[in-house]
């Protein structure tokens, strides 16, 4: 059997076919390359950066708000200019990208896993558990992110882990509610009735039958929620309760530079903003395409 499978040319095997299909779209290929570059840049930020943007003693106020391609007092070139503290924007963006992507992806994955499994289970079980969970969701949705972040800030202090936690708390309910809605629709369908008639275990029905069928819409929500998590983190920074100012994320850079948007010193906010836009658009175009080519049900 395996011999036969091996003799099938690569492009005719499912993965190969998908890849070939992926390559058909030049935009998607470009998105893939950009995504790869973004990930590498984030991964090797400390090696690529000309300056350690987190080390205050390396910054020089006299190098503050220099436009792109300026020379520093020490003779180095600031390709994307500096912020008001004399921080090299290129280095700050590379480091910030790493933080933002980590915070965005980690918090979304956790919120997604937690929220959607609870939501699907609630839809499947119904009854008291469903009512209870959905009321908790109502409560959670009504609670402003700012208040959650403030309480966490006071109780736990500042930092990446705490912001991630705050974002999980803010977003899990969203997934729970969305997953429950879709799962509720699936639950009434014949195949679930059939599975129940076969006396399959609850866990099996939920994970093997319900979950795959509610996944498509959840994944769309999840991919956009990564971006929202990054934005929320930026917004929290904008409102004054994000990460420490000396260790900026991309969102913090944007919100810090926000004040400069009308000042003519556009680079302080513009480049971080553009970096975020490029990263998110590339990741999403790639994601869209991958979903299209990998989803077996979308095969012609």
């Amino acid at each position: 059997m395996s011999d036969i499978a091996l003799r099938v040319p690569f492009r005719d095997r499912p993965l190969g076919r998908s890849l070939a299909e992926y390559r058909e779209s030049p935009g998607a290929v470009a998105a893939f390359v950009v995504t790869l570059l973004v990930l590498l840049a984030a991964l090797f930020a400390s090696q690529l950066s000309p300056q350690d943007p987190y080390d205050l003693s390396k910054l020089d106020l006299m190098d503050g708000t220099l436009p792109p391609m300026s020379k520093s007092l020490a003779g180095a070139t600031y390709a994307l200019g500096t912020d008001e503290q004399g921080r090299d924007m290129l280095s700050a963006i590379l480091y910030g990208l790493r933080i933002s992507l980590t915070v965005g992806v980690v918090s979304t994955v956790i919120a997604f896993a937690l929220g959607s499994s609870l939501g699907i289970y609630a839809a499947y079980r119904g009854g008291r558990f469903d009512s209870f969970l959905m009321r908790v969701v109502d409560l959670q949705l009504s609670f402003p992110a700012l208040l959650i972040a403030l309480v966490l800030l006071v109780v736990l202090g500042q930092g990446m882990g705490k912001i991630t936690l705050a974002l999980v708390i803010v977003h899990w309910a969203y997934f729970a509610r969305a997953a429950r809605g879709s799962a509720l629709a699936e639950r009434g369908k014949e195949y679930i009735e059939a599975a129940r008639a076969l006396r399959l275990s609850d866990v099996r029905i939920v994970f093997r039958h319900l979950l795959p069928n509610v996944m498509p819409s959840l994944i769309v929500i999840a991919t956009t929620m990564v971006a929202r998590a990054i934005s929320t983190e930026a917004t929290l920074s904008f409102l004054g309760i994000g990460l420490p100012i000396t260790e900026p994320s991309l969102g913090l850079l944007i919100s810090n530079g926000f004040r400069y948007l009308l000042s003519g010193k556009y680079w302080i906010s513009f480049y971080p903003g553009i970096a975020l836009v490029i990263a998110i658009i590339a990741i999403n175009i790639m994601g869209d395409r991958l979903r299209d080519v990998l989803n077996p049900r979308l095969k012609k």
Partner: peptide, 16 residues
């Protein structure tokens, strides 16, 4: 592509 732009920027940045 354009819709990806819609959620890739923080609201305060887009607004200003």
């Amino acid at each position: 592509g354009v819709s990806a732009f819609g959620f890739s920027v923080p609201a305060f940045w887009l607004g200003l």
